[in-house]
Amino acid sequence: MIDVRRLRVLRAVADHGTVTAAADAMHLTPSAVSQQVRALGRDLGVELLAPQGRGIRLTSEGQVLLEHADAMEERWERALADLAAHGEGHTGVLRLTGFPTAVSTLAAPAAARLRAGAPRLSVEVAEADGPPAYEALLSGRADIALTVPPPDGPPADDRRFEQRLLLREPLDLFVPDGHPLAERAAKEEAEDEAGIALAEAAGEDWIASKDECHQGWVVQAACSAAGFTPHYSHRVSDWTGVLALIRAGLGVTLGPRMLPLHESGGVSRVRLAGEGAPGRSIFTVVRRGAADRPAVAHGLEALEKVAEGLAV
């Protein structure tokens, strides 16, 4: 018998190249990872790993097994779906993960909807952005991830995941109150004129996020599409810090339409106009086959209902 959890560990070792890195991704100890892979090899009567320099590589037997692992994972998810169908998904645990603004504007309201409609279904929410969100799915620590697909993320046809577009969200330019672009935007909106183009902020000092946050490459891609490279003066990922810097007149940045500013006096939102106005696409991601599990299906439906109700 093959333990699917051990296949997930083998996949993590193959993806990360070392036992230590795989252990970090799986939230396990290195010794536990080694034991799981050795046990899997013993069950099959083959060696799965071999040393390579300072790292390790999969043996030919390990490569063959990994080719079948994704299909086995999908079949396992479909088996769980069939079993869960008898309970209609109203019991058990559903784990949601996502980046910070997705947690506050999508996951939290969806969890509240689920609690009201299925009080015996326990919903757990965690925060993860970029590759850690996909790793949480593969390790079984999450059932649904809310992501903005990163440049180095899994492609749309990755056999391990089902990725669905949930929401296309515009990005606004956040500037200090009294900024000339904010005053112009207010005037042009009142006069029903064209509005502000992102390129008009090319000469500003910009606030960038740290590398682990998707916001950084979203801003970079939007500015590149508008024809300029922003001059970054500050690198902060937490929106409390970002808004404080803007309020102090130290820079500007792009921010999600869903981010509320009513408690952030001193910061103005400039809605951008013109062709190619920036935005971000938010996806729900599940392990392939898991969308048929009733609890996961309920979670996806709740997220879709919340997204439909957002004024973006």
Rank of each mutant, 00 (worst) to 15 (best):
S60Q: 11
Q52M: 15
T97K: 08
A14N: 04
P51T: 02
W76K: 07
A111C: 08
A81G: 10
R75Q: 15
A84H: 12
G87W: 15
E61F: 08
L96A: 04
V103G: 06
A69V: 01
L58A: 07
Q63G: 03
E47R: 13
A84N: 09
M26F: 06
A108T: 10
R38C: 01
M72Y: 14
G62M: 05
R95E: 02
L80Q: 11
A14E: 03
E74S: 09
H16M: 05
A108Q: 13
E88H: 15
L48D: 00
E77Y: 14
T59E: 02
R75S: 12
D43R: 02
L28F: 08
S31G: 05
V13G: 00
S60G: 06
Q52K: 14
G62L: 05
A81E: 13
A32G: 04
H68I: 03
A111T: 04
T20L: 13
L28I: 02
A84L: 11
P109H: 14
E47A: 12
W76L: 06
G55V: 00
R78L: 15
L58K: 09
L48R: 03
V103M: 10
A23Y: 05
G17Q: 06
S104E: 13
G62Y: 04
A22I: 01
H27K: 13
S60V: 01
G45M: 11
D15L: 09
D24W: 11
A50L: 10
S104R: 11
L44W: 11
A22T: 00
L80F: 12
T20D: 07
A12M: 05
A112D: 14
L66P: 00
G55R: 09
D43Y: 04
V37M: 00
Q35A: 11
L66V: 01
M72G: 03
V46M: 10
V103K: 12
D82C: 15
Q63E: 09
A50K: 12
T105L: 11
D70I: 00
D15C: 05
A21E: 05
S104F: 12
A71D: 06
E61W: 11
T101G: 06
L49H: 11
T18Y: 10
L65E: 02
R75N: 12
L83P: 10
G45H: 11
G17R: 07
A12P: 01
H86I: 07
L106R: 10
A112F: 15
A111E: 04
G17K: 08
V37I: 01
A79R: 15
Q52F: 15
T29P: 02
D43F: 03
R78Q: 15
P109W: 15
A71Y: 09
L80E: 06
R57L: 08
E47F: 13
L48E: 01
L48W: 07
H90P: 07
T101W: 14
A107V: 02
T97S: 08
A50G: 02
D70W: 09
A69R: 04
A81F: 14
R54G: 07
A107Q: 11
R38E: 00
G55S: 05
A21Q: 06
A25M: 04
E74R: 15
W76C: 04
V64G: 05
I56N: 01
A81S: 12
G53S: 13
A32F: 10
E77K: 13
L80N: 06
P51W: 14
T97C: 08
L48Y: 07
E77G: 03
A112M: 15
A102G: 07
